[in-house]
């Protein structure tokens, strides 16, 4: 998979763009009849694979691999869902409704409701609307995704100074990008960062949804996905 990497001055942003994983496709079980449960099973399988890819992606964020293993784990344990959801948001930007979890898995509002994901649908659509209004670029989206992980407010951080330096590096990269590419929009970095509370809210709702679905034994979930759900709340 090759990426059409544009000529971007900032090395961190360039590295983030180059590390963007190829989009995954949903793999619905061909023999199971369509149902809300099948939709959920397909979604959980997709998210588990996204999670694997995301952990690999995190290693390529400039500065991440310099953190201790304990801190890498801490950031991923608190920020994984935010990073996953930003991918969904990015993919859904072209649509005026629905959530595009994959090219072949687009869920509209009634489908989300029937699958028990309505409380996730509403904040995510609000987030998508915000990014549509901002006309967010791919560079900004990848920077925010890395920042969501870096800024995940993990509780058990071993070396707080290292995490702060990691955050600063990403923040500087975004500021540098905006100065060079969007000089006329002086408040743009602030506007982008002000979307992050809604992302966190969406992430909490998503975790609650999936935990509930697991507790109700509705959907079989992969071990990694369960392990990560276990770290939240």
């Amino acid at each position: 998979y090759t990426h059409p990497v544009k000529s971007i001055h900032n090395k961190v942003i360039s590295q983030l763009l180059a590390s963007e994983p190829a989009p995954l496709r949903a793999s619905p079980d061909p023999v199971t009849p369509d149902s809300d449960l099948k939709t959920l099973m397909t979604l959980c399988d997709l998210l588990n694979r996204e999670l694997l890819v995301m952990i690999s992606w995190a290693k390529h964020i400039p500065g991440f691999s310099s953190l201790s293993l304990v801190d890498q784990m801490a950031l991923l344990q608190s920020g994984w869902m935010e990073a996953l959801l930003l991918c969904v948001v990015w993919r859904s930007l072209a649509s005026t409704q629905g959530l595009e979890f994959a090219e072949n898995l687009h869920l509209n509002e009634p489908q989300c409701k029937n699958a028990g994901l309505l409380e996730l649908y509403t904040p995510l659509r609000l987030l998508i609307d915000k990014y549509q209004q901002l006309n967010i670029s791919h560079e900004e989206a990848v920077a925010l995704r890395a920042m969501a992980l870096a800024n995940s407010d993990a509780e058990h951080v071993e070396n707080g100074d290292s995490v702060l330096r990691f955050q600063d590096g990403l923040h500087e990269a975004l500021q540098d990008y905006e100065v060079n590419e969007r000089a006329a929009e002086t408040h743009r970095v602030g506007k982008l960062l002000m979307t992050l509370p809604l992302l966190r809210q969406s992430s909490h709702r998503a975790v609650q949804c999936f935990r509930r679905l697991h507790i109700q034994h509705l959907v079989p979930m992969h071990k990694l996905f369960l392990e990560m759900l276990d770290t939240k709340i």
């Binding site: 694997l52 890819v53 690999s56 290693k59 293993l69 784990m73 344990q77 990694l224 392990e227 276990d230």
Partner: peptide
């Protein structure tokens, strides 16, 4: 880390976490 064995293993792997 005991509770999060898979994440721990994936991060320790030097190769991309693809499996």
């Amino acid at each position: 880390t005991e509770r999060h064995k898979i994440l721990h293993r994936l991060l320790q792997d030097s190769s991309p976490a693809d499996g």
